[in-house]
Design a protein around this nucleic acid. Structure first.
Lengths: 142, 142
DNA sequence: TTTTTGCGTTTACGGTTGTAAACTACAGTT
DNA sequence: AACTGTAGTTTACAACCGTAAACGCAAAAA
């Protein structure tokens, strides 16, 4: 069977997925109302995005009377992990550390999040290298 | 004076910028060779990308004899920070913590990077909230 | 000087994205 | 039964992207 190809979610589509994930399932009018409020989008725009997400397989449309209910077909956390992983893949590996520092600085994290991060870091510290090599240009360090 | 509009760097363009940042300044043939090797791109593709980056103002082309030398006009770290910030802005704030944990897990970090992160986290822990609110749907928590 | 080669510029072309209006069809209202 | 919403579908459309080939020109080689 066809292994579901990598689903690419665009910036605008992310916003729609967020509410779908949060609410579990949504109707287009529901999303439209939320998006008008949060993003200033017209109803038509939301319809387009929902349609594209269904076509991509990120959402499933299940008929419910006259309309449809949309259900997320991909999970939130893995989707986020993958998007983030892709972006970081384009960055110089040597700079990832600093980028994370900057990111943490400008992000709001809960006590629990911080504790979890500290735990992973402590674990990682056990056998982390002294230096990470730059891989921007084969055979060069920046 | 025109405040330089936000420069958007696409995925393919990132790869070109990386080598420009690493080498300080580059010629198109240099980039072409590296990209043929690293990405399998044709020379023509690299030329297009260099041209687009110059037009966007991410690179500057300075004539050097028959050819040009391309210099980065934007800094690496701020560019990365901004790209990462934009992506995280599309994610549910409640999930950012876990996403960072997953990211750290799949990333190679140096001892120095880890120490820096631990320092920022320790600082942040001092007045981090117990919980971070979900902001996917106004007035709802997931 | 004629030829070749390397470099920047123009043109190409199908896809994706953001943003939305227009159109169609059915259900609930009058 | 006619009318009016509402929901989904089609069409639009310019900008951006990935990926290049084609073109024109000047410098280097023959």
């Amino acid at each position: 069977m066809e292994a579901q190809t990598k689903i690419e979610i665009s910036d605008a589509e992310w916003e729609v997925m967020r509410v779908a994930w949060t609410l579990g399932n949504v109707t287009s009018s529901q999303v439209a109302e939320i998006m008008a409020d949060k993003m200033g989008w017209k109803t038509a725009t939301v319809k387009t995005l929902l349609g594209r997400l269904v076509k991509k397989g990120a959402l499933r449309a299940e008929k419910n009377g006259r309309a449809f209910n949309y259900y997320p077909m991909v999970e939130e956390q893995p989707s986020m992990d993958e998007a983030v992983g892709t972006l970081f893949g384009h960055l110089c590996q040597m700079r990832v550390g600093q980028t994370l520092v900057d990111l943490v600085n400008q992000t709001e994290l809960s006590q629990t999040d911080i504790a979890a991060l500290q735990a992973v870091l402590a674990e990682k510290a056990k056998d982390a290298p002294e230096m990470v090599e730059c891989d921007c240009v084969p055979g060069t360090r920046c």
